[in-house]
């Protein structure tokens, strides 16, 4: 019953498409002899087909948007020519899950980049407006402003002047501040060295190398001592110099 039914529809299909109504057709012969008689049906693209193969559809989509390289072979396509894009497109990532890209294999103007480009146009307009202006960074001192000194970006187009904030504006770090920082760093370094030096005095019998290190530190201390002397006063200097002197004397032995 089933076989007769199936043969019937097969016969009907063959008849409708001009195929010989026989179970033993020589397909090669048929194709070579009468190609003009074949009219394959133009099946419309089936969305569910693409849904069923997500990987294929994504790769198709990506290949629509980008040049994927010469090695890339999309799985779900056979007609390469139709997918060729004349120029690359900007990919706008959307967080909106509904904004799916059309699964159509044919290249078509994609709605997503166009929708996203509305913002882009605004930016371009701003850029165009500003492009007419020359741009200068200025450092201004104004004694009516509490901080006195500030930095601005000045836009000028002939007699029109506009003010803008400096991008990535950081506090003006003066050389003076850097120097003060360096001085402090130097003090701290000296303190560390001094600690090392005083600690080493406890182990002064550990060998010749240890002694060398202490002497080296002592040599540097000549350079630093004035910093300490000026910053901590004479008393402190005398106190500090005593253990060092002891260390030296022990090393000398």
């Amino acid at each position: 019953m089933l076989s007769s039914k199936s043969s019937n529809w097969l016969h009907r299909l063959r008849a409708s498409r001009g195929f010989p109504d026989s179970d033993h057709i020589d397909l090669d012969h048929f194709l070579s002899s009468s190609p003009h008689q074949i009219h394959p049906p133009k099946t419309p693209p089936l969305p569910h087909h693409h849904k069923s193969n997500d990987n294929g559809s994504i790769s198709d989509l990506l290949s629509d948007l980008f040049h994927m390289g010469a090695d890339f072979q999309p799985k779900s396509r056979t007609k390469k020519a139709s997918r060729k894009q004349h120029c690359s497109k900007i990919c706008h990532l959307s967080t909106n899950s509904d904004a799916r890209v059309s699964p159509s294999p044919l290249p078509s103007p994609l709605p997503l980049p166009l929708a996203a480009s509305s913002n882009h146009v605004v930016e371009e307009e701003d850029a165009k407006a500003l492009s007419a202006y020359s741009q200068t960074e200025v450092t201004v001192i104004d004694t009516s402003v509490p901080c006195w000194k500030f930095e601005k970006v000045l836009y000028r187009s002939k007699n029109v002047w506009k003010l803008g904030e400096k991008k990535g504006k950081a506090l003006i770090t003066t050389d003076r501040n850097k120097r003060l920082m360096n001085d402090n760093l130097h003090k701290n370094k000296f303190k560390k060295k001094f600690k090392l030096c005083t600690n080493s005095s406890k182990f002064n019998n550990q060998g010749h190398d240890q002694g060398k290190m202490v002497v080296a530190n002592e040599k540097k201390r000549d350079h630093c001592s004035q910093v300490r002397e000026k910053s901590f006063g004479k008393k402190q200097k005398e106190e500090d110099s005593t253990p060092l002197f002891k260390v030296l004397s022990k090393v000398g032995k």
Partner: peptide, 8 residues
Amino acid sequence: LDIVTGWP
């Protein structure tokens, strides 16, 4: 009493 400078 008041100074502003730095502008072109």
